[in-house]
C-alpha cells in the first residue's frame, strides 16, 4: 500500500510538471496548447540526441537542450502565434493541433518511432526508502525536479520584475502594452518556460520508462487533466490536480490492469467536467446568458 502511494507520488511529480506547462501557456499566452504532448516528446528527443546519440558532456547536454527548447519557443511565437493575434481563440487551438501534427511528423522522420533507452548520468538504482517501500533513483530525480520548478516559478512570478510583468500581461495584454511592457517578449518567455517544463517532464518520464514518441506524447496530452482539475489557469491548482491524477492512474492500474493507464486521466477529466468544470481553483467561467 505504501509502495503504491510512493509510486503515485513519483507519477504525480511528472504530471505536475506537464500540468504546469499547460497552465502557464493558458494563463500567460491565452492558448490551450494541444501540441503539449508533441512538444514534450520533442524536448525529450532533443535531449536524447545530445546525450545518447552524440554523447556530449552532461553540462553541454543540459545547456544545449535548454537553449534549443527556448529557441523553439521563440520561433513558435514569432512564426505562428504572433501572426494569429486578434483571431478568435478557436483559431489558436486549431493552430496548436496543426502544430502537433507537424511536430509528430518531424519527430518520426528524424528519430523514428521505436522506443529507445537514454544514456544515464548515474546508474538507475532502486532506492529503499523504508522496509519494503522503494522507488527508483530517477523517480526521486523527478520529484526533485518538480519541486525545483514549482519553487522557482513561485519565486519568479512573485519577486522578479519580469515575472510581475508576465502576470500583468497575462491579466490584460492591452493595458500591459499601454504600460510599455513588451508583450511579445512576454509571450516568447511564456513559450520558453512552458516548453522547458515540458521537456523536463518528458526527460524524467523517459528515464523512468523508455523514450518513445507515442508514450511521451500520450503523457503530455494526459497532462491536461491535472491542469483542468486545478482550474486551467491556476499554477497552485496543478499540485493537487497532479496528486489526484497520480493516485487515479496508480490505483486504476492496480485495480483494472495496465491498460487503465491510458484512460484513467481522461475519465477524471469527464468527471470533473460533469461536476465542477471550472476545476478546484479556477474562476467560474460558465457563460452568462
Amino acid at each position: 500500500m505504501l509502495s503504491l502511494l510512493v509510486g503515485a507520488l513519483v507519477l504525480s511529480a511528472i504530471y505536475a510538471l506537464v500540468g504546469f506547462a499547460w497552465v502557464l501557456l493558458r494563463r500567460t499566452n491565452g492558448i490551450l496548447n494541444l501540441a503539449t504532448g508533441a512538444q514534450l516528446a520533442l524536448g525529450a528527443f532533443i535531449f536524447n540526441q545530445y546525450a545518447t546519440s552524440w554523447g556530449l558532456p552532461w553540462p553541454v547536454v543540459v545547456l544545449g537542450t535548454l537553449a534549443t527548447v527556448v529557441a523553439l519557443g521563440a520561433v513558435t511565437h514569432w512564426l505562428i502565434f504572433r501572426k494569429l493575434a486578434g483571431q478568435p481563440e478557436f483559431a489558436l487551438v486549431v493552430a496548436t493541433l496543426g502544430l502537433a501534427s507537424a511536430l509528430k511528423g518531424l519527430s518520426s522522420l528524424t528519430w523514428g518511432t521505436e522506443a529507445r533507452v537514454m544514456r544515464e548520468p548515474v546508474e538507475g538504482r532502486v532506492v529503499e526508502l523504508l522496509d519494503g517501500v522503494s522507488t527508483t533513483l530517477y523517480g526521486i530525480f523527478g520529484l526533485v525536479a518538480a519541486l525545483v520548478v514549482f519553487a522557482a516559478a513561485h519565486a519568479f512570478f512573485r519577486y522578479s520584475t519580469t515575472g510581475i510583468r508576465m502576470r500583468a500581461a497575462a491579466e490584460n495584454s492591452v493595458l500591459a502594452s499601454q504600460g510599455g511592457i513588451a508583450v511579445d517578449w512576454v509571450y516568447v518567455l511564456g513559450w520558453a518556460i512552458a516548453l522547458t517544463a515540458a521537456a523536463i517532464a518528458g526527460i524524467m518520464y523517459a528515464y523512468q520508462t523508455t523514450l518513445s514518441f507515442h508514450g511521451v506524447d500520450a503523457l503530455g496530452l494526459r497532462g491536461i487533466a491535472p491542469a483542468l482539475v486545478g482550474g486551467l489557469t491556476s499554477i497552485k491548482g496543478v499540485i493537487p490536480g497532479a496528486l489526484i491524477i497520480g493516485l487515479a492512474e496508480t490505483f486504476g492500474v492496480k485495480l483494472f490492469g495496465g491498460s487503465a493507464q491510458d484512460v484513467a486521466a481522461w475519465v477524471v477529466i469527464l468527471v470533473v467536467l460533469l461536476i465542477r468544470p471550472q476545476g478546484l481553483f479556477g474562476e467560474k467561467q460558465v457563460e452568462r446568458v
Binding site: I80, K83, A95, G98, S101, A102, G105
Partner: peptide
C-alpha cells in the same frame, strides 16, 4: 510523416 507535416503546416498557414 511528410503527410503529417504537410497537413499540420497547411492548417497553420491557412489560418494565418
Amino acid at each position: 510523416d511528410f503527410q503529417l507535416i504537410m497537413y499540420g503546416t497547411l492548417v497553420v498557414v491557412f489560418l494565418i
